[in-house]
Simulated assay, not measured.
Amino acid sequence: MVERLSAGRGLRPRARGRCLGLLVLVFSLAGCGKSREEKRPAPIVAPPLGDAGGHPRGLFQVTSACALPYRMTIDAPTTWRLPFTNMRPGDRVQLAFWGHWSPATLRSAWFGRFVGGGEVEGAVQLTFDGARRVELADGVPVLCDPFDYPMRRGERYAVSFSAVGSVPEGLDFEGDGLSAPGDLAREPVLEGSPDWRGHGVKWVAVEGEAQRVLAVLGDSIGAGQSAQRAEQRFIEVAQMRLGHPVVDASVGGDGIERALNRLERDVFELPGVTDCLVQLGTNDLHREDPGFLIDGLSDAFGRLRAAGIRPWAATIMPKPGHLTEAGEQTRREVNVFLRSTRLIDGYADFDLAIRDPADPANARPGMLADGIHPTSAGHAEL
């Protein structure tokens, strides 16, 4: 968990603090139908935020995150430059770096505004309890000292760091990231090779006024697989439309049980998350057991609610060519549950957005890349 400390102290691991947002969370859907099954609940207005904990400058909330389920081992120092789009205005920043199942050494880390073409400006060096170098233990987040930096909504920033050892990474998307051999994190222009995976950085948080922050707990669909570019993933499209952070807490291949096992690490420990969209179930349809999925999803919704996070659901999209008749019936029964349950604050009807109205077991042309994962056009619909 994370919590705010006294003024100017930033965050620390393993304590829980939550807030509720002011904004109305509205999911944009394509082709909403008129039947009772397809009708969405009205948007729900969150309760007022109330006291921000006495912090004179606001509170830290996450603006970018990655579950980092994979790893690579680096024998020689390597530098990464990782751009991201910020959707949280504020004036102070803190980052969490994460080691995987074996240790790594973070040799140097910098933060600045991303200009493009591997270039940053206004970069500042990060410290860790005053030190510029830190060891990353296996599975333990390491927080940098909070630092002043003006953060504007919709602008691009970049984390640059060099490391050696076991460095965690995320999915591969075409984007603006770079890597290069050597300790080059401080260089204004990094001349390296395209590197489109997230590496090492668990989350970036910004201190400012309290706002809505949505995490997506999902599988490879939530992680954005088959989107051509990182900014075409539905989480990126959604945050630009909604105007607040929508952050990645998804791992490819996850079913409900595996996602529940990492709920603490990948959602509860993100600072200031107010809402969570649960996008799970497609990898459990082979069980052909609606009760298993409904029980697991209900558990997820309840645990989120108990942690002070508003739960939302995504209906399960068609999976043409991958399901038996019993598997398809399971998908439909679970979707009926998700559209009617009072355990959640609302749902995003991914099924309705993607499916073929004339054949609900199939997707509309151009929506799925492989019968499972949305194309970039499909992500835009979600």
Rank of each mutant, 00 (worst) to 15 (best):
G50C: 11
N86W: 09
G54V: 04
G53V: 05
P47C: 00
R71F: 15
D75Y: 05
D51F: 12
A76H: 13
T79C: 08
V45K: 09
Q61G: 04
G58D: 05
G53C: 05
R71I: 08
W80L: 09
K34N: 07
A67K: 03
A46D: 09
L82M: 14
G31I: 09
F60P: 00
P69R: 07
G54S: 03
M72W: 02
R36C: 06
C32M: 13
L68K: 07
R40V: 08
R71E: 07
P56F: 12
V62E: 01
A30P: 14
V45R: 10
Y70C: 13
T78W: 07
P47N: 00
A30L: 13
L59N: 01
P77F: 12
M72D: 00
P69S: 05
A30W: 14
Y70P: 02
T63R: 03
P43D: 06
I44F: 05
G54T: 04
P83R: 09
R40W: 08
C32G: 11
L59D: 01
S64N: 09
G54F: 01
K34A: 10
T78A: 08
G54Y: 02
T79S: 11
T73A: 15
I74A: 09
P43H: 07
A76Y: 12
P47G: 00
L68E: 02
K39N: 00
T85M: 14
S64G: 00
V45M: 10
A67E: 01
L68P: 00
K34I: 12
A65P: 01
T78K: 06
I74F: 12
G31S: 12
L59E: 09
F27S: 10
P48Y: 05
L68C: 05
K34V: 10
S28W: 14
L68Y: 03
T63Q: 02
T63D: 02
C66P: 07
F27G: 09
R40Y: 03
P56Q: 03
P83A: 01
G54A: 03
R40D: 00
T85L: 15
N86E: 06
R81S: 13
F60L: 02
G53Q: 03
E38Y: 00
I74H: 11
V62L: 06
E38G: 04
V62S: 01
Q61P: 02
I44E: 08
Q61E: 02
D75C: 14
R57S: 04
